[in-house]
Design a protein around this nucleic acid. Structure first.
Lengths: 146, 146
DNA sequence: ACCAAACATTACGTTTGCGTAATACGTTAA
DNA sequence: TTAACGTATTACGCAAACGTAATGTTTGGT
């Protein structure tokens, strides 16, 4: 009966690769989220639960970090956790069937369109702000400037 | 003792200007929101409550519509109702003092920076989606295309 | 083997942004 | 004036996205 080691060292041609297995605390820190957030994402199927032996603790990989970052990015774009589920899958699951690849393309094109839409909205907003700013600046120039 | 008229007609050089006083139902329809939404905005100080005589009903103007539209726009940009309060003021209040004009400029510049930030994020996202799409398209070309 | 940290699980709490009655007036067209 | 409909006010409801205990189990170090 052997015990689980927390970190594994591999020697290869004189170089030591230390593959420290990451637990939820480190994952949370490195991804800039709370443990609760991670567990929440796991509970709603947005993140796969980290690997574990039986009923023990969960261990995560670097990919888990990227996944959390991607989720964060999508949140900034205004997607709800529910809405982003599909897209996140596309980034981290290799769809093996032709069918799923077609579906992936559809979803991606749709999200591309939405992104373009959002770009327009923001650009318009920025334009409005800029002219407001210029308006104020001219006002100050007239009063204070020489 | 006179009664309140719901609509007022003004004749000027043969043209009739009908200045129908708008109540919350019409405002809601024309702005594309619910009455509940309007009342909610009023209750948190995001919208000024429409004018009224005593305890009667509220009457709104065209500006109320624009205000609701502006709120909608800011929501799409991801601002919370709380966050957008200041900006909305800037659009619809004429700051009379120099002090408030300076503050307005500050806020506007800050929001301009945030808008630029958001633009970058979305552009990056769009880039990622595009390369994913191209990846899938190449895959299909190799399999099906001639 | 033992203890302090870190983790797992469960469950109730919180904020935001309204929805949805319920009840009581106000307004208008007939 | 009176029925019918639009409003005002109050209050409870709800989904999303976690926060915050509380309690029990694992793990890593000595």
């Amino acid at each position: 009966m052997y015990t689980l080691r927390h970190d594994v060292n591999v020697m290869f041609e004189g170089v030591i690769f230390m593959d420290k297995r990451m637990r939820i605390g480190e994952l949370a820190k490195r991804a800039g989220v709370t443990q609760r957030t991670i567990r929440h994402y796991e509970s709603i199927g947005l993140m796969p639960p980290g690997e574990r032996e039986g009923k023990g603790q969960h261990y995560y990989t670097e990919e888990s970090i990227e996944r959390l970052r991607k989720i964060d990015q999508l949140k900034k774009l205004g997607l709800s956790l529910d809405e982003m589920r599909e897209v996140v899958q596309l980034y981290f699951i290799d769809p093996s069937g032709v069918q799923s690849k077609r579906k992936a393309l559809d979803i991606l094109r749709q999200h591309l369109a939405e992104a373009n839409q959002k770009l327009n909205e923001i650009q318009q907003f920025r334009g409005e702000i800029q002219s407001l700013i210029e308006h104020f600046e001219r006002w100050f120039e007239k009063r204070e400037g020489g």
